[in-house]
Design a binder for these strands. Structure first.
Lengths: 162, 162
DNA sequence: CCTTAATCGGATAATTAATATCCGGATAAA
DNA sequence: TTTATCCGGATATTAATTATCCGATTAAGG
C-alpha cells in the first residue's frame, strides 16, 4: 500500500503558495526547481489540484498557480483525493460469490463483512486527514522551522517573480 | 493507494479455517478452489501468513494450513502487516532538503511536519485495524449470512478432507 | 522402501500501476 | 509578434503487483 509521491509534493507546494503576494502565481518550473522534482510530471499533479479546486491557474506570461482557498479551508484529505482519486484502497472483489459455496448475487445485498471492516478503517483514516488542515500543518512547520527559514523561502520566491 | 488483493483473500480464508476439525489443515489447492483464486499465488500469501505466525502449516500428505491462534487473537492489522509488510504507506522523501532553499541534514532532526501529519493519520488507521479481530468479523458474518450458508461451507470443507 | 500428497522457497514471467517525458494547442502579457 | 505559461493527449519508462513453475523437503500409508 503506497501513497503516490505526488501527494507529498502537492502538500509541500501548497504550504509554499500562501507566501506569494496576492494575485500572483508560481510557475510549474519554479515550483519544480524549489523542490527538485521533475517539472513535466509535477505539471500533471498541479492540474489535478486545479481540477479539485485546491489551486487556480493563470495562463500566459506571468501566470502560474496559486491557492484557490485559504489554507484553513484545505484539508489533507482534499489533497489526497485530488491526487489519488476517490476510489478506496481496499478493493472488494466479492470472492464470497466465488467457488463451490459461492453466494448468489441476490444474496449479497449487504456489503461483505470483510470489506465493511476494511472500509470502516479507511473511513476513520479519511476522517483523520479531513480534520487536518493545510493551515495547521503550516503553523506547525513555522513553529518548528529554523529561524528565518520561511523568510528565506519567501525571498527566493519573490525573486523568481521578477 | 491500493491494498493488495492478498489481504482480501487472506482475510476470507482466515474466517474459513476455524471451521476445520481440530488438528486438521486445508491444502492450498482446496482453499484456492473454494474462492476461485490462483493456487500458486495464494500459496505465496499463505507462506506470508505463516511467517507472521497467523497460520501454521503441516507438510506432507494430509497436511495443509490451519490457524495458529484463535480468531480473537488475530487482528486485521496482523493480516495487513503479514501480506503487505511493515513499511508505511506515506513515504517521506525529505524534499524539504531539496532545492535552493533546502534545509541541511543537521537542521532536520525532527520529522517533517507534512510526513508527521500523514503518519499520524496512518497510525489512526492501523489502530482501527488493530481493534478489529478476525473473531468479530466472523461473528458479524455469521449473523448476516443466509441461514445454513456457514454449514454448507463446513460440509464442503469436511468433504475435501476425506 | 516406495509412492503420493503436501508445503517451502527460489527464480522468473506477465500484468498493471506509478512515474516521467514530450509536444502541439490555447492564452495572455509585453 | 514574441515570449512565457497552462492544458491535455500520447507515449515511454520504471516499479509494484500478480502469477507461474519447479526442484527440494516432509510426512502418511501401503
Amino acid at each position: 500500500m503506497q501513497i503516490a509521491k505526488g501527494v507529498e509534493w502537492a502538500t509541500h507546494i501548497c504550504t509554499i503558495l500562501p507566501l506569494l503576494p496576492p494575485g500572483r502565481g508560481l510557475s510549474v518550473d519554479v515550483l519544480a526547481e524549489l523542490f527538485e522534482v521533475p517539472s513535466a510530471y509535477l505539471s500533471k499533479q498541479m492540474q489535478l489540484l486545479r481540477r479539485a479546486g485546491i489551486v487556480e491557474s493563470v495562463r500566459g506570461k506571468g501566470g502560474g498557480y496559486r491557492l484557490a482557498r485559504t489554507p484553513d479551508e484545505i484539508t489533507l484529505l482534499d489533497i489526497v483525493l485530488a491526487i489519488e482519486g476517490p476510489s478506496p484502497a481496499f478493493r472488494c472483489t466479492e470472492i464470497r460469490q466465488n467457488g463451490p459455496c459461492g453466494l448468489k448475487r441476490t444474496d449479497c445485498k449487504r456489503p461483505c463483512e470483510v470489506a465493511s471492516a476494511f472500509g470502516e478503517a479507511e473511513r476513520i483514516y479519511r476522517d483523520a486527514l479531513k480534520a487536518r488542515t493545510l493551515g495547521s500543518v503550516m503553523q506547525e512547520a513555522t513553529m518548528n522551522a529554523k529561524p528565518g527559514h520561511m523568510i528565506d523561502i519567501a525571498n527566493w520566491v519573490q525573486k523568481q517573480l521578477a
